[in-house]
């Protein structure tokens, strides 16, 4: 898998995809964006999505029941306690997928899907795969 832009273009091949971004949830920075954004401003959308991601990643209620919080992988990487966050509304789906990296980071993939054309289950699987390939190749 090549870089951020190629990853986002892959994400946009999902049926119903309207826009996507790679976002840092500690700062709210959009590291890369493609397509449309729900409020017409990718940077503002990234900051809002980052707030949601941070709450999910930090609150104990959403961590696995075994008490593990940030689990350490074999390469010393840290897997976030949460895999995905999904928000649905009348006309769209919003899917956030946490990216597991080999260096310290707080990054997620964000996808905005049209409700009529989008398939939430397919989008979740594809985002999971692309998040892994972005870092592992």
């Amino acid at each position: 898998m090549p870089g951020i832009d190629e990853c986002l273009l892959e994400v946009m091949r999902l049926p119903g995809a309207r826009g996507a971004a790679v976002v840092d949830w500690t700062s709210g920075l959009a590291l890369g964006t493609v397509g449309e954004s729900p409020n017409g401003d990718h940077e503002a959308t990234a900051a809002e999505a980052a707030e949601l991601a941070r709450l999910a990643a930090e609150h104990r209620a959403f961590a696995p029941a075994d008490g593990s919080d940030w689990t350490e992988g074999s390469a010393g990487d840290k897997a976030p306690p949460v895999e995905d966050v999904m928000v649905t509304n009348r006309d769209g789906y919003h899917v956030l997928r946490f990216v597991r990296t080999s260096f310290d980071s707080s990054v997620f993939l964000y996808l905005w899907l049209d409700r009529g054309e989008g398939n939430l289950a397919l989008a979740r699987l594809r985002l999971s795969d692309l998040a892994d390939r972005l870092i592992l190749g």
Binding site: P2, G3, I4, E6, V22, S27, L31, V99, S102, L136
Partner: peptide
């Protein structure tokens, strides 16, 4: 490193 990992880490350091 993959391109993706390099870009994410480098952009993080840049900002």
């Amino acid at each position: 490193l993959t391109d993706g990992a390099l870009e994410l880490c480098h952009l993080g350091a840049l900002f």
